[in-house]
Design a binder for these strands. Structure first.
Lengths: 260, 260
DNA sequence: CGACCCTTTGAGGCAAATCAACTTTGGTGG
DNA sequence: CCACCAAAGTTGATTTGCCTCAAAGGGTCG
């Protein structure tokens, strides 16, 4: 429980840590995703500790990151791409509880098994932390713990919004809400700092994923998107993104306002 | 940001703290709900700080605790009774995102307004903390912050389970899941430490609340409960509690297993 | 005892699911 | 470059689980 000096390698439970290169140590320092993530606002010494405790990993689309019920041995921070989190019933019915985009963490839990599964939607880059190691670090990195609390609280708020959607919205309202939620996500282009009114929704996931996220079938999702397109509220589906032609109208639909 | 000494009264933003009696200071120390709550595992000095920062409040059934959109000025710890948390659409559709029973906290958020409403279901007793004051305390009460993180994480896990229910379960499965979730809740009697197999579900809320929690109508909830009763899976509705006659069967139904 | 609220039960309608083709997209190899 | 194929998406016809509308029981409290 004593504060570790920042230089020596960490003892990893039963498994030696490989020697760290300078680039490893600087990885966190130079990370573009740091601001807005749980690694935000930390001093260089703390970042060095983080860098030493994590590994950068690249994953192709459709890769399983964690499986529901697996031993919860790791914690992840997504630095690029989109991940889907889900829970399933024995007969195969699936509910996607959220999409985690770049900058979000993943894998926190209060039991020793993951209460959800996670799979990459597209090409994903993430930092993997050993859970045990991270928990020990929390004591010495109060800012990290504070960030975690804020982040989990934000996820919980989103989950409550999604419960309203799943329990009380119509298919049309669900799809409208989904599209709005995908606005301004993954504007990883250098064109950042562009007016956030950019009406382009990032939709890297398939209809199956969207349906499982909204509690609908793929047919209903497809029909609803077609209807919105016919009404000129959204544009013809471009690849993995949808242009919003009438954001205000879509917002009205999403919140259940009578008109439109 | 300096560590406050534990004895002097806290400066409360713009508002003087009333003189504290010994009983106030001991309130937290003697609180039966402490274990299992965010106030667990703290030393006496910290508890004294907590006691000084909070007020005990009694509320009758149907009382609004916080309103969605209100300035998030307070944080609560429920010590008796049940509270419902909910979000609403402009046209009145409502989704109850959770019931908070004794021992749970309520009111954490990452914006300056509450993203949900909260109302008492029955007679409720709670401790009210000033948010601003509590945030300052967090730095000096690391155990409290750790408890908060664990608690919010648990709420998030429950929220994910509820999303699976709302998006993918049938009415029958929803009601079965709800009843199982209400088992072993509010066994505030002195008969605690009794075998947890006690098949009595605490249901202090109305059919309207249950319907808004499960994403159903009151008629469907009523019909489904009647059906389970007809099938001898649950007993005739006692006042504010339902006896589970066949827990195993109910569990099968809740998880979507084919039989029963 | 009657007014009010909550709950239960019944009859019919509808939004979304299911079932069933058909079309488009994207990748692979000849 | 294009033929081929599998996967993803779209569209239509039909079914159905739950909602809506309606009305009849219980409980409680003044």
């Amino acid at each position: 429980m004593a504060q570790p000096t920042p230089t020596p390698a960490f003892p990893l439970s039963g498994k030696a840590v490989r020697p760290q290169s300078d680039s490893d140590i600087r990885r966190c320092l130079l990370c573009e995703r740091r601001a807005g993530s749980v690694c935000a606002g930390m001093d260089e010494a703390s970042l060095a500790v983080l860098a030493r405790s994590s590994r950068k990993i690249q994953l192709p689309p459709g890769t399983t990151i964690v499986e529901e019920g697996d031993h919860a041995g790791a914690f992840f921070n997504i630095t690029a791409g989109t991940v889907k989190l889900f829970k399933s019933l024995p007969d195969g019915r699936r509910q996607i509880t959220g999409f985690a985009d770049a900058g979000q963490f993943l894998g926190l839990g209060n039991t020793d098994v993951y209460p959800f599964g996670a799979e990459t939607v597209n090409a994903v880059q993430l930092c993997r932390f050993q859970r045990q190691q991270l928990e020990a670090l929390l004591i010495d990195l109060p800012r990290f713990e504070r960030n975690l609390l804020a982040s989990v609280t934000e996820r919980l708020t989103e989950a409550q919004e999604q419960m309203l959607l799943l329990g009380r919205k119509t298919a049309r309202e669900k799809v409208a809400s989904f599209l709005l939620g995908r606005l301004a996500i993954g504007c990883q282009a250098d064109l950042s700092a562009l007016p956030e009114a950019e009406p382009l929704a990032s939709v890297p996931m398939t209809r199956v994923d969207i349906a499982d996220y909204l509690g609908l079938t793929i047919e209903t999702v497809s029909r609803t998107i077609s209807a919105l397109r016919r009404e000129k509220i959204i544009a013809s589906t471009e690849s993995h993104s949808i242009r919003i032609l009438a954001p205000a109208t879509l917002r009205h639909i999403a919140t259940g306002q009578p008109q439109a």
